[in-house]
């Protein structure tokens, strides 16, 4: 059972996982909406669902594989043309460690 008191902390952790800095006003907005939504979603906990298989996609599909043929990749210039920063054949990013 989710404790509504822990939601504030859960939101902070989730924002970090989503790689987002939420402003205090956004945290409060989400907290209020989330409390409301979880109440609306109470039916999910009330319904007997143990024997029900989940549906992750609307239709049953087996693994869809294409022919194992070598196809041309996206040209390097195209792949790099939207990069905020690139050098030669590389995407440039800041250093990995703090």
């Amino acid at each position: 059972m989710i404790k509504l008191e822990s939601i504030k902390e859960d939101i902070k952790k989730a924002a970090l996982d989503a790689r987002i800095n939420l402003a205090p006003v956004e945290e409060t907005s989400l907290e209020n909406q989330l409390k409301d939504l979880l109440k609306q979603a109470a039916f999910l906990r009330e319904q007997e669902l143990d024997m029900v298989e989940p549906t992750f996609f609307p239709h049953n599909q087996q693994n869809t594989l294409r022919e194992d043929n070598v196809l041309p990749s996206m040209p390097l210039d195209n792949a790099l043309e939207n990069a905020p920063e690139a050098d030669d054949t590389f995407f440039l990013v800041p250093k990995i460690v703090e």
Binding site: A41, L44, L49, E53
Partner: peptide, 26 residues
């Protein structure tokens, strides 16, 4: 931002089991 944070939160263990997995069953 709020929607993605909500999605991240619902992906957690306790929320995943009680809400996301049950939503897929519903």
């Amino acid at each position: 931002k709020e929607f993605l944070t909500f999605g991240a939160l619902i992906s957690y263990g306790k929320y995943y089991k009680d809400y996301f997995l049950r939503a897929q069953k519903m």
